[in-house]
């Protein structure tokens, strides 16, 4: 099976307006139908990179961005690019589950409705997302309750389902299981294994163990620099950089 580079990051550097340089000259390919893992100690620029891929960084004051990001070969920072359409193609799940202050159903309808979907199709998308996120059975009878009434683990899977309702091509997950119990974590991870059949998955795991568990491809970030990347099987057994080895064997970080 040949690898298809869905997202190509080329010499990307990002500096925030307070002067923090979060990414320095990062070049990296993210592959379709793979779980791409970005890992490394906190402050390495992983979240910054994720937010660059769906241009959520537009919401914060980024002072300077150099380099480019290509999605299917097209520059996502091109002036004529439709940002809203981009964000529908590149969905995101955050570290802390943030259900919007509405019912579960409304949370799930939110994205598709904005995209112009109407009628029964909304509920179909909702159900499909919930099933893919392995939470359908738990919430199917309480869709009209406030989303905040769910437990933390359920909320996070709801957020994953909500992202899936848009039928995106790329799913970005920023430490999606950092606040979850082991059972919920296992459910999310197994959903990801199924989702990767159809999607490009980019995940920042919350631990090295998780990184090693899920990675098809892995990239190690340290203080804004991409130290090395390659197939997970190789990187976690025979890293080529000493710093990577130190990190995965727990000698620092």
């Amino acid at each position: 099976m040949s690898l298809e580079a869905k997202v190509q990051i080329k010499s990307l550097s990002i500096r925030y307006s307070d002067g923090t340089e979060s990414l320095r000259d990062v070049s990296l390919d993210l592959y379709a139908r793979q779980i791409n893992v970005l890992f490394g100690p906190a402050g390495g620029g992983k979240s910054t990179l994720l937010r660059a891929i769906n241009r959520l960084n537009d919401l914060v004051e980024v002072a300077e961005r150099r380099g480019e990001i290509l999605l299917d070969g097209k520059d996502i920072y091109a002036p004529d690019l439709d940002v809203v359409a981009l964000r529908r193609r590149v969905g995101m799940v955050f570290a802390r589950p943030v259900p919007l202050p509405m019912t579960i159903r409304q949370n799930l309808h939110y994205g598709p409705q904005l995209a112009g979907v109407r009628g029964t199709r909304l509920d179909e998308l909702a159900e499909k997302g919930l099933r893919q996120a392995a939470i359908w059975d738990e919430v199917k009878d309480r869709l009209d309750e406030p989303a905040s009434s769910l437990s933390g683990g359920q909320q996070q899977r709801l957020c994953l389902a909500r992202t899936l309702t848009l039928e995106p091509e790329v799913i970005l997950l920023d430490e999606p299981t950092s606040g979850l119990d082991p059972i919920s974590t296992a459910k999310v991870e197994s959903s990801l294994q199924q989702l990767k059949e159809a999607y490009t998955i980019v995940i920042v795991p919350h631990s090295v163990q998780q990184a090693a568990r899920v990675a098809d491809q892995a990239a190690f970030f340290l203080q804004g620099e991409l130290i090395e990347y390659g197939p997970g099987a190789k990187l976690f057994t025979r890293p080529s950089d000493q710093r990577t080895e130190d990190y995965i064997t727990g000698r620092f970080g």
Binding site: L56, L59, V84, R87, G91, F94, V98, L100, Y110, G111
Partner: peptide, 10 residues
């Protein structure tokens, strides 16, 4: 809330 809504294509 704003970030999430934006990420959902609003």
């Amino acid at each position: 809330f704003r970030v999430v809504s934006t990420s959902l294509g609003a």
